[in-house]
Computed example of a mutant assay.
Amino acid sequence: MRNVIYSAIILFLVSSCAIPENIVRIESTENDIDWLMGKQVITKTEDSITIALKYEQKRGDYVLFDTELFNQSSEKVMVSPRNFSIVEINNTSTNKRWIAATNPEEVLLKKDIEISRSIAAQKNAATTSLIVGTALLATDIAKTTSRTDTPEKSAARGAVAGMTYITAGAIHNANVRNEEYGLRDRVFWAHDVLRKTTLYPGESIRGYVLFPRENLFDSFGVEIRLQEKVFDFNYKLYSIPANNY
């Protein structure tokens, strides 16, 4: 019996071990590269519009590109993540695959729904805790005045009440953590991510553009379309397998 228990414990530990992820590096293949705090900065200008692009990092399921745009033309320019896409660089096929940038407005809507549900869950948990606590208190009072009550029964009721409060508290704390995380993440998407903006002559804007990192191409270009202009920034992805380190 003891061997079976030991085997089960070993099997659990082996199956629950975390596996390191592959390390991913994204580097520019452009010739003209500037550097800022260890990051490559690629700058391109066309018809008085300048774009500086810097691969920043990965964040969860996304890769981030720090983007700054300058409108030095005499006309206003509409900037939107919908103008950004990743296009596969593949010389063996004429059908190029592409990945659209993530729309921050859609993400913000989902965040608002999640936060609203979390707040509602907190209120429901608090109401449930109050109802259960009141019922247990009433039961305890009734039992205490009963002649059939004993110290053992009273202690058992107290244990049940304690477990009920602990469970309700754990649910409440989990909902609070979800709400706090959702609010922090919402601030990032609302203020740090590039959103649809009209740039008037002489104006500039800076923000992150995010792409899903799943199935990212080994060689790709970040394509930015502004009105009739197209800006291309070429990159290559390097992956270091986890079993190599």
Rank of each mutant, 00 (worst) to 15 (best):
G182R: 08
H191F: 15
V187A: 10
A168E: 01
L183R: 09
G169R: 03
N178D: 11
L199Q: 10
H172C: 05
H191I: 01
G182N: 02
D192N: 15
V176D: 04
H172M: 11
G169E: 04
K196N: 06
N178K: 09
A190E: 13
V176L: 14
I171D: 01
N173E: 14
L183Y: 08
T198W: 07
R195Q: 12
N178M: 14
L183K: 15
T197D: 11
R186M: 10
D185C: 03
V176C: 08
V176H: 03
R184G: 02
A174E: 11
A170E: 07
V193Q: 11
L183G: 00
G182T: 04
A168S: 01
V187Q: 06
H172E: 03
V176Q: 15
A190P: 06
Y181D: 14
A190T: 04
K196E: 13
W189G: 02
L194Q: 07
E179C: 08
N178G: 11
R177H: 13
E179R: 15
Y181P: 02
E179W: 08
K196F: 05
I171Y: 12
L199G: 06
G169Y: 06
A170Y: 09
N175Q: 11
T197V: 08
L194G: 09
T197L: 12
V176G: 00
F188I: 05
R184M: 12
T198C: 04
N173Y: 09
N173R: 09
W189E: 03
I171S: 03
K196T: 13
E180K: 13
A170T: 08
I171P: 00
L183P: 00
F188G: 07
A190M: 02
E180Y: 09
V193S: 08
A174L: 10
E179T: 10
N175V: 07
G169N: 14
N173C: 06
H172G: 10
E179M: 15
T198K: 01
N173K: 07
N175P: 02
F188L: 03
L194V: 05
I171K: 09
D192F: 10
L199T: 11
V187H: 13
R195G: 03
H172F: 15
R184C: 02
R195T: 09
E180V: 13
G169T: 01
T198Y: 06
R177P: 02
K196M: 00
E180C: 09
R186F: 05
A168Y: 00
N173A: 14
R195N: 10
W189F: 08
R177D: 12
T198M: 05
K196V: 01
N178I: 15
A168W: 03
V193W: 10
N178R: 06
R186L: 08
I171G: 03
R177K: 09
V193H: 07
N178V: 12
L199K: 09
L183D: 01
E180I: 07
L194T: 04
F188S: 00
H191G: 06
R186V: 00
E180R: 07
V187W: 14
G169A: 00
A190V: 00
V193F: 12
